[in-house]
């Protein structure tokens, strides 16, 4: 086999597999998004970018797009900020560390939908655990109707999103921390660096590649995360907590506008593609370094 063609021949089988799994559905979705489609996915006339035009004229879609970016940014930033100190603590040697680590990781084993449903109950205005706890502590006098309006529902959803993202993120950070050699700290301590300086000048720079990866992976997961918002509010009231995935689901399977739904998923795909490219570039830069 000539040297020049060998790589292509060797790549070919996996390319074939990738096409079957990724490219073929992509082609189908592109064709759905450019045609008039009935609610059972049968194609009718070619209508070009009409579905996209309708979407961009829909204020609910625009609002859902911005909200998705806010949702992703808030959950990812919140997760990273909270996970770093948790990982640092769990990296210390203390009595019961094993149990503490398990407790942090345990929620990971529970399906996201179940967590979200438990929260839906906890946030119930009249019989929810959260209100009775707050009343028991004397913090509030009247029940807060958490899920009745976006002003309280959406922050709660972000809070739940952060809670469920912590286990995964802490795991990545713990892996990162275990690769930081102890003698660096010893050397720094001898030079008179305080613990803040040690964190700032040693831990953080060495943790950076792991933070990058946690950032990108979390962004992709959270951006696409359906269960939390669906189980608590279904994007309501009046679409005020919709993100793109819930908007997509409603458009496709409730209302039956499969063409528009295909267009939404393509737009989401495009946004995620950008994230993925960033991820690949980060990963490659780390590999070179």
């Amino acid at each position: 086999m000539p040297r020049a063609t060998a790589p292509y021949v060797l790549i070919f089988p996996s390319f074939l597999l990738a096409s079957a799994i990724i490219l073929w559905p992509l082609k189908e979705i592109v064709s759905l998004s450019l045609h008039d489609v009935n609610r059972f996915g049968m194609l009718r006339d070619f209508i070009g970018l009409e579905h996209f035009r309708v979407l961009f004229a829909d204020p609910d879609f625009i609002a859902a797009t911005w909200r998705t970016l806010l949702w992703t940014a808030a959950v990812v930033a919140g997760t990273l900020i909270i996970s770093v100190p948790i990982a640092l603590i769990l990296n210390e040697d203390f009595y019961g560390r094993g149990i503490a680590r398990i407790l942090i990781m345990l929620p990971w084993a529970i399906s996201l939908t179940m967590t979200a449903i438990v929260w839906r109950w906890a946030l119930n205005g009249e019989s929810g655990m959260l209100n009775s706890a707050l009343r028991g502590l004397g913090l509030i006098d009247t029940n807060i109707q958490w899920l009745a309006q976006a002003a309280t529902a959406f922050p709660m959803q972000i809070f739940i999103g952060i809670l469920v993202s912590i286990p995964f993120t802490v795991t990545i950070f713990l892996g990162g921390l275990s690769s930081v050699p102890d003698d660096l700290y010893e050397a720094a301590a001898t030079e008179g660096a305080g613990s803040w300086d040690q964190f700032r000048l040693i831990t953080l720079p060495l943790l950076r590649p792991f933070i990058n990866i946690a950032f990108v992976l979390n962004t992709i997961y959270v951006f696409n995360s359906f269960p939390i918002i669906w189980a608590t509010t279904q994007g309501g009231p009046a679409n005020s907590t919709d993100i793109l995935v819930t908007y997509l689901y409603k458009t496709g399977f409730r209302v039956g506008k499969l063409g528009e739904a295909a267009a939404v998923s393509l737009i989401m795909f495009a946004i995620l593609l950008v994230f993925t490219i960033i991820y690949v570039r980060l990963a490659m830069r780390e590999a070179k370094a």
Binding site: N124, E126, S127, N143, Q145, W146, L147, A148
Partner: peptide, 19 residues
């Protein structure tokens, strides 16, 4: 009405009635 009606689905209101 119960406060926060937009957070009560049909099942939720039925539960309030049972309670």
């Amino acid at each position: 009405t119960q406060p926060g009606v937009t957070s009560y689905s049909r099942e939720d209101v039925q539960n309030l009635f049972k309670q």
